[in-house]
């Protein structure tokens, strides 16, 4: 069930990330749904996790000892759907059902939306407590799986995040890894202006977590750090992943209008050209 070494190739993963980005942009346009900038910022994180870190089997997505992945920032659902489809959890054609009337593939994911989805998210601040319960369950059940939770920086506004952040170290949960997609924006403003989020690394460290900082849009950096996390430190792990909202498309990068804006057909074409997909 471990990832195959051949998939670790950085260039290969970067190409996959480009494809997933193209898919996410197309889905936003086809289904006329927002949150594109949020999806684009976390795609490199998802690709590295699904292709080189998570101990999973796309053909046996409910194996008891599988690693768990929760996209707590559920509004980036297109990134999750596209990653799962490209990783082989379900046929690529099924992505066409996204946000269509009668489809189970909603704008926020839930168990049953697609194989491989571990928790329903969309309301922020839920993924980490659920992941904490999963990490404790592995101890109780004597299983060795790890739990990865990807959150947004805006999500750190929620008090429930800090409730979970405080209790996880008390249980020495080194199998719980939170990755914060720190793109410095939330829906309507700079994260630092809305709340005093900085120093984010210092906050997690003060709560008792082992903290790593990295470039969350660098496949190589992600592979190197996520691939070498020690699992014997007896502390949960927080990865502050510095990212760019709208990453990968020049006219979307760091422009918060793309939190809600939906690309036109010509913008989709231009974006795909930039990504080298057409």
């Amino acid at each position: 069930m471990t990832a195959q070494n051949s998939l670790f190739d950085i260039k290969h993963l970067e190409k996959i990330a480009d494809q997933v980005r193209g898919e996410v942009i197309q889905l936003s346009h086809s289904a006329q749904t927002p949150h594109l900038g949020s999806s684009l910022s976390c795609i490199d994180i998802l690709v590295v996790l699904y292709w080189s870190i998570l101990s999973i089997d796309s053909q046996n997505s409910t194996a008891p000892d599988r690693d768990r992945f929760i996209l707590s920032k559920g509004h980036a659902a297109t990134a999750l759907y596209a990653a799962l489809a490209y990783r082989g959890f379900f046929p690529l054609d099924e992505l066409r059902n996204y946000a269509q009337p009668g489809s189970v593939m909603a704008e926020h994911p839930s168990i049953g939306s697609a194989p491989g989805i571990e928790a329903a998210t969309g309301s922020l601040g839920h993924g980490l407590p659920i992941g904490l319960g999963m990490a404790l369950a592995s101890q109780i059940q004597n299983l060795s799986y790890r739990v990865f939770v990807v959150m947004s920086d805006g999500e750190c506004n929620e008090g429930s995040v800090w409730e979970a952040a405080m209790i996880a170290p008390a249980h020495g949960l080194s199998n719980l890894i939170v990755v914060i997609d720190y793109n410095k924006w939330q829906a309507t403003g700079r994260s630092q202006d809305v709340t005093s989020i900085d120093p984010l690394d210092g906050k997690w460290r003060a709560f008792g977590w082992d903290v790593y900082e990295l470039d969350g849009n660098s496949i190589e950096n992600l592979v190197n750090v996520l691939g070498s996390i020690p699992n014997s430190a007896n502390k949960p792990i927080a990865i502050i992943a510095h990212t760019i909202k709208g990453k990968g498309v020049s006219f979307m990068e760091d422009d918060n209008n793309w939190h809600y804006r939906i690309p036109t057909a010509s913008e989709v074409e231009e974006a795909k050209k930039e990504l080298g997909l057409i």
Binding site: I130, G133, L136
Partner: peptide, 10 residues
């Protein structure tokens, strides 16, 4: 939330 995570793991 913790309870739910545990329940989802059986």
């Amino acid at each position: 939330g913790m309870s739910t995570g545990m329940a989802l793991c059986g």
